[in-house]
Write a protein that binds this DNA or RNA. Structure first.
Length: 311
RNA sequence: GCAGGGGUGGGUGAGUGGUUAAAACCGGCAGACUGUAAAUCUGUUGCCUGACGGCUACGUAGGUUCGAAUCCUACCCCCUGCA
């Protein structure tokens, strides 16, 4: 076991080829993949989440993929815990951990050592507070509540963002300490090399559009039908709130045609790509960007080799 | 050919004499984010300008009016009914 642990992270927007590059790097450097994707953690959601294929999974060990059922609770906290565990085990095995995924919140929670308030979600309280927010003027009453409990947090949280206001109240109630005190970080025992895959927006949109057509061809609709009909999962589950699952769900129920569903998914995916760039910024000094217009492997390999040579 | 409806910003589509650079929605762009994060929320979106302000815009060309996306005329397209 070596400290700090050398770790590679492959990040970037959806459809940029993180999975493929991760697997190649794993083969080249005796690595193991640790997923960093908030939807690939769920079982039975394969096509629509762009999960690594069985072939890819055979080429390198994968972790943090298929770890919970769609109706089970999962969050950054679980991720941090489980991924941290996986990474140390990989390291102990003498392999190179390779983080690969597009969920910025998860990636940085791990690499920056975010210290989350130790307050698990309280469904009952959430239900209650959300019900308040539903009512006329409810949002304001909720916000007033927060302003009383924790004036500092109230200033930082948008009053219209009910979900965040609720969580803040949840934390202050459970701990008796203000939510605004969160924000601590504890540097994790990693020496990360963060590789970001990118290219111009237009080309990226083209790729994600084509990828969605592929997913449909690969049986995404059947996948959703099975989730709904055979396994009986509700479309209201957080797991099913992922891109496209709702649209395809509506199509399965006969509410919209497939072309319309596909069109909407493409648009939503564009939005998602932009959202991901908010987590992985072009100017972020922690990230080494590689343009995917050409094969990113040589540049990635060089970067990894250089960083390992430093040790 | 006759009758009727319509042509609005990247798209759909309101507006029917001034308070309209033009609602709303979509799309685009930017941002927030510490246990739902592919979630949730925010800002911005004709052009020039740091701002004041200016310029160009509602099919085309004219006209009426102090003032027109809104009224009139002609023309060009589109749709519907009758032939």
């Amino acid at each position: 076991m070596s400290y700090p642990i050398n770790l590679i992270a492959v990040v970037g927007p959806t459809g940029a080829g993180k999975t493929a590059l991760g697997v190649r790097l794993a083969e080249r450097f005796n690595g193991e993949i640790v997923g960093a994707d908030s939807r690939q953690v769920y079982r039975y959601m394969d096509v629509g989440t762009g999960k690594p294929t069985p072939e890819e999974r055979a080429r390198a060990p994968h972790h943090l993929i298929d770890v919970v059922n769609p109706d089970e609770e999962f969050s950054v906290a679980h991720y941090q815990e489980m991924a941290g565990q996986a990474i140390s085990e990989i390291d102990e095995r003498g392999s190179l951990p390779i983080l690969a995924g597009g969920t910025g919140h998860y990636v940085w929670a791990l690499l920056e050592g975010l210290r989350l308030p130790q307050v698990p979600p309280n469904p009952e309280l959430r239900r209650q507070l959300s019900a308040v927010a539903e009512k006329e003027g409810g949002v304001d009453r909720l916000f007033a509540q927060l302003a009383e409990d924790d004036p500092v947090a109230a200033q930082r949280i948008d009053r219209r963002n009910v979900r965040r206001v609720v969580r803040a109240i949840e934390v202050t109630r459970a701990t008796g300490r203000p939510f605004s005190e969160v924000g601590r970080r504890e540097p994790p025992p990693y020496r990360p090399v963060v590789l970001g895959l990118t290219c111009n927006r237009e080309e990226l949109y083209r790729r994600t559009d084509a990828r969605i057509d592929d997913m449909i061809r690969l049986g995404w609709v059947d996948e959703v039908r099975r989730l709904m009909e055979e396994r009986g999962y509700s479309m209201d589950l957080p797991a099913l709130s992922g891109l496209g699952y709702r649209e395809i769900g509506r199509h399965v129920r006969g509410e919209i045609g497939l072309p319309e569903a596909v069109e909407r998914i493409k648009i939503e995916t564009h939005r998602f790509v932009r959202h991901q760039y908010a987590w992985f910024r072009a100017g972020d000094s922690r990230i080494q960007w590689i343009d995917i217009t050409q094969d990113p492997f040589p540049a990635a390999e060089r970067a990894v080799r250089d960083s390992l040579a430093l040790v």
